[in-house]
Amino acid sequence: MILLENVSFGYGDDSSTVRDISFHIERGEFAAILGANGAGKTTTAKLIDGLLKPTKGRVLINGLDTAKTRVSERARHVGYLFQNPDRQICKNTVREEIAFGLTAVWQNAGEDAIARRVDEVLESFGFSGDEEPFSLSRGERQRVALASVIAIRPEIMILDEPTTGLDYRECTHIMDTIKTMNEEQKTTVVMVCHDMEVVASYATRALVMAGGHLLGDGPVKTIFRDQELLKRASLLPPQIVELALRLGPGFENADTVEEMTEAVSARAKRKGAGV
């Protein structure tokens, strides 16, 4: 589905540099790109979307080289949710905003088909359609942006720090919507994210970057327990994983609060039973 072959971008020590990275993401995966600021995460996300073209190597989306694909053609398959919704929103009502993206991409669809799709999306997000985006809160605006991306029914969703500036509840709203798409429509998700707790709760695969290089690639659970790797990328594991690592043997599988509670109470009870 997404294939990067020896991709490099940029020159010198620029923070947007990516150096010779290769990976393959299958349909239906939920991958997170992790790393400190300036590690090359956003550049990688933009390379996948085709907003940036690699200076070396190639990026294939569904077998098509992004360097040779037209913008509108690619936007039909790949949706991109930016950190700042205000760069995307340009219409006066939520309905027009959602329709705007659709008309740009579904060029052959009739007006009826577009209107029907807009209504569907409005309903599933609980918008009336007449709201003015700029009078909504930041979290609501991010949901408008998400709605207009989802409307296109992309096969691939790229999220660039989708939860920055949102509170916990807004963040959960957005992420739950994306998780549902991932599970029900097998939408492939690639997410750049700083919040390790969000990554731990939603993503299944993690790509770790630092200084433009890809340092690690594997299941989130395994990556979060690789302390040496996280340290090299200046990352910290989620609290519960860190606690489990410090506690050592017996806590290898305690990744969530529930699992940790269970593990602790089991051990405590055994001790109480006088073993």
Partner: peptide, 9 residues
């Protein structure tokens, strides 16, 4: 860039 991402050419 954001508009390009959503298919505006």
């Amino acid at each position: 860039e954001a508009q390009t991402a959503r298919g505006v050419e």
